[in-house]
Design a protein around this nucleic acid. Structure first.
Lengths: 145, 145
DNA sequence: TATTTTAATTATAATTATTACATAATTAAA
DNA sequence: TTTAATTATGTAATAATTATAATTAAAATA
């Protein structure tokens, strides 16, 4: 908890109770890539007074400092992701899960290059397909029949 | 026009007037990556009776057949793109333009591979930075001063 | 050709995600 | 402790998209 408080202060944000709670939620559900709604629903269970606006305000403040990133992979909703180490995302077309994929091997080109005169500052990439779990279930079905 | 009609039929879609018009618009504005709203606004000028729902229905039908792709690069809106040849997108953080980038050099890994047991079917990637035009204007400003 | 069936389009209303805004509460500074 | 600044809250507004049901057009059948 002290760690998270420091994280906020290091980013020039006052460590208010609600900000700490939002950050804590993101930290504890790093693999969920939650939506604003999911965060609000979870927090409001223990904090009945927190408002949706606060969640959005907080997330937008986090976005500005680069503490979190917003992913629009599914196309219908914004998923928030605590920025820890560089990684990419995998969207399973069967179960809809977004999975972190470490990029030890350079899946996308290095940053700050130039293509056709355009200066590249960020490279965003994600994969779409069938995740390991769904792959396994498909195989099991085949085995049974 | 016959070409577009055939394109619809080849994708198992009846070539109705409104579908043809939406497709024609996408074909003529291939570099704009328009939103549903932009398409509706443009078409309704000559077709006062066309409805927003029809534009959405049509775009969703196109999406299902893979005729178009939906890009959520900016994070606030869905941009539609006629699928012609494989390419990536570049979002300029200064002017907001989305520019097509041909991928002759393999910027992202080849398709249908496996990472951690997840089968990759599609690779989505986009770049963010400053486009060639904005780069040039920045340089000109520097020169003047 | 007339009739039936199916598919596509339309208008309206509903839903959802997000933001604007005014007010209240909290915190920091003087 | 008073004042100023920041942050949180509730309500309402906005914008994008979808659901629904009615209408129209097209295709199939008799």
């Amino acid at each position: 908890m002290e760690r998270l408080k420091k994280l906020l202060e290091d980013n020039g944000l006052k460590p208010t109770y609600q900000r700490l709670k939002v950050l804590e939620y993101l930290d504890r559900h790093i693999d969920t890539h939650p939506t604003a709604e999911m965060i609000y629903d979870a927090l409001s269970r223990n904090m009945p007074t927190i408002s949706v606006t606060t969640v959005y305000n907080t997330l937008n403040a986090f976005l500005q400092t680069g503490l979190v990133s917003a992913e629009t992979i599914t196309g219908t909703e914004v998923r928030y992701d605590l920025v820890t180490h560089p990684h990419h995302h995998f969207l399973c077309r069967m179960c809809g899960t977004i999975i972190d994929v470490d990029v030890t091997c350079p899946v996308v080109e290095a940053k700050t290059k130039v293509i056709n005169g355009h200066t590249i500052e960020e490279v965003h990439g994600y994969f779409k397909g069938v995740c390991e779990k769904c792959n396994r279930e498909k195989t099991e079905c085949t085995k049974k029949s």
